[in-house]
Amino acid sequence: MELDWDDLKIFLAVARGESLSAAGRVLKRDPATVGRRVSRLEEVVGAPLFARSPQGYGLTDAGARLMAHAEEAEQAVTRGTEELAGTTGGLSGQVRIGAPDGCANFLLPQVCARIAAEHPELELQIVALPRVINLSKREADLAIAVSPPATGRLTVQKITDYHLHLVAARDYLDQNPPIRTLDDLSGHSIVGYIPDMIFDKELDYLSEIGAEAVSLASNSVSVQLGFLREGAGLGIAHDFALPYAPNLEKVLPGDVSLTRSFYLVRHAGDARIERMTRVADMLMAGLKAEIARLEGLT
């Protein structure tokens, strides 16, 4: 049985997008054409690859088995293309980086701009999402995570630690009762995550200071920082974000000092793709240096 690489690309797009329309957008093809190509591939392999339902296209057992081989083929084609292009010098092509919005807003723009300046033919895309990036659906090529994933054929590398503190605007502190101990936090307005939208246990900061109620909440770190800058209350903020909010002051830094880590996550097979490896190395070094620089300013 001989499989056409173009059919496999279509299969991968449908498997990752879970619909013909999503695959069509990625491939820039009409969904009906995508559907016909999927049906043709199923005829070739002699088995249904997708379970169709109103919710979308889910992989069957046969589809799941083909998925592993299709991804290996995809990686082989990418490696071959890069070798022929000669990637020992400047890098080219597209690399999509997924990250939680705090990292995406306050760290990645500087880091990616420097990488792009060195490699002008490289196209870097940042996907900022207040949730875990789904690499299996190829939402991104590389992902920054706040805790290492426990499942999947993934390569996980620790980038560096970062720090967070309880902060508030100077105006808020001047206009409200003094805070000398953690007990004094009672009665103050608290800014934080929407409790049922905390997508990683490492982000449950307020439980560590005993805060039971959040007065102003968002699933976005940037929005939370906006609340704090406006003097809306107290909240946990990344030290690397504080240079962007000079009117914020640390509160009880001796009692409330949190340490978290960033991890770089990618498909295990991508480690053999030179472009991905080189971008991953530059990304890790750049993030580590940028965190150290910004935290040094505070």
Rank of each mutant, 00 (worst) to 15 (best):
H119R: 12
A47M: 08
E208H: 15
S222H: 07
Y244G: 00
A13T: 04
R36D: 03
F240S: 01
H238C: 02
V279P: 02
I194T: 15
V223K: 13
F106L: 06
A289N: 03
A51H: 13
H267E: 12
L248C: 06
A140T: 03
G102H: 05
V111D: 03
V156F: 07
A289E: 07
A70W: 13
H188L: 09
G231M: 11
E295V: 05
P195Y: 12
G58H: 14
T160Q: 04
F240Y: 15
L142A: 09
L166C: 11
H69N: 02
V38Q: 03
I179W: 10
A289W: 01
R153H: 07
A64N: 11
T33I: 08
D200Q: 11
A85D: 07
L84V: 10
E274C: 02
L142G: 02
T60I: 06
Y244P: 00
S218G: 04
K137E: 08
D281A: 13
D184N: 09
A113M: 08
H69G: 00
D141M: 02
R96T: 15
R138I: 00
K201W: 05
L225T: 01
T160A: 08
Q94P: 00
D4K: 08
D161N: 10
D7H: 13
L107A: 06
V146H: 07
A116S: 15
E230Q: 14
E123S: 14
R25I: 04
E295W: 09
A70Y: 09
A211Q: 14
A15E: 05
T277E: 15
R278V: 02
I133S: 13
G210D: 10
K288D: 03
G233D: 06
M284D: 00
R29C: 00
P48H: 12
R16Q: 13
L258A: 06
L185C: 04
